[in-house]
């Protein structure tokens, strides 16, 4: 952690960045996102195994948009998010200094986008054993059973939109669900309103999601949205040989067309 702090302090002291985005201690044993603007403030910066919130989310918020340049303590999920945001023209390389941190918490120093791409390839996205078990269980289901499973899984949704608000890839200024003329998605958190909302969000993220799992972590009613996204990512990889978060130059499979695209899903 000391090497991360040293790097953050130097970047601020040498005026290389105006802002460092990282973590500080929170309530009890929790940690929380924090914004450091002076070398002295960095004393409070921490990094440990609890720092799993995907803080790349804040890159699209006012505080980061208004900073001329910034640094971010970036675990593999954050690095993948930055590359994907760059691929979608949401962040420029010259604005951001990535302080790379491995899954094990080891600081690998500053990463430019090329180094970040290499780093991403060596830091595969992880899945917990219970997540793997759930995926296997769902994959073994028939189409009807899958549909019933997700209807049931979405039913506790209260439409607080924490999944959307916590997702670095959900950066639209106006979400489709807020469009009311016409009303594409029912706002009410009833069975079909929940189903349509989560299906719509999943489809908008298919091939773009970097599988950080933040949607599930932030969900107050613990819907396994990360599983849905993970299965879709797997599907996109299989069908289009395309994976988000590995390169700053990338066209999401569902936003592009190539002559080799399979059409065998049209039945």
């Amino acid at each position: 952690m000391e090497d991360i702090k040293k790097l953050a302090r130097e970047l601020l002291a040498d005026n290389k960045v105006q802002l460092v985005l990282g973590f500080e201690n929170g309530t009890a044993n929790r940690v929380r996102p924090a914004f450091f603007t002076t070398p002295e403030a960095v004393d409070k910066l921490i990094y440990n195994e609890f720092c799993i919130q995907n803080i790349a989310l804040y890159l699209k918020k006012d505080i980061c948009q208004h900073a001329a340049s910034l640094a971010i303590t970036a675990n593999p999920n954050v690095v993948r998010s930055i590359l994907q945001l760059a691929a979608e023209n949401q962040i420029k390389e010259e604005k951001i200094k990535i302080i790379g941190i491995t899954h094990e918490g080891k600081c690998v120093g500053l990463l430019d986008f090329k180094a970040a791409e290499e780093f991403s390839k060596t830091q595969p996205k992880g899945l917990k054993d219970e997540d793997k078990a759930l995926i296997e269980k769902i994959q073994a289901m028939s189409l009807e059973e899958k549909f019933d499973y997700w209807v049931e899984a979405f039913s506790p949704c209260i439409k607080c939109y924490a999944c959307r608000a916590s997702c670095p890839m959900c950066y639209c200024g106006k979400c489709n669900v807020e469009s009311n003329n016409p009303q594409w998605i029912p706002v009410a958190p009833h069975k079909y309103g929940n189903m349509e909302w989560h299906m719509m969000r999943a489809m908008h993220l298919a091939g773009r999601c970097i599988n950080c799992g933040e949607c599930n972590r932030s969900c107050p009613v613990d819907i396994p949205l990360n599983i849905l996204s993970y299965m879709l990512s797997d599907f996109v990889l299989e069908e289009f040989e395309s994976e988000a978060g590995l390169s700053a130059v990338f066209t999401p499979a569902l936003s592009s067309y190539t002559m080799v695209d399979k059409e065998n899903f049209i039945k």
């Binding site: 924090a34 989310l57 209260i158 607080c160 939109y161 924490a162 959307r164």
Partner: peptide
Amino acid sequence: MRCVGCGACAF
């Protein structure tokens, strides 16, 4: 500053 703007608190 760190508020993500969801409605979990109110709900």
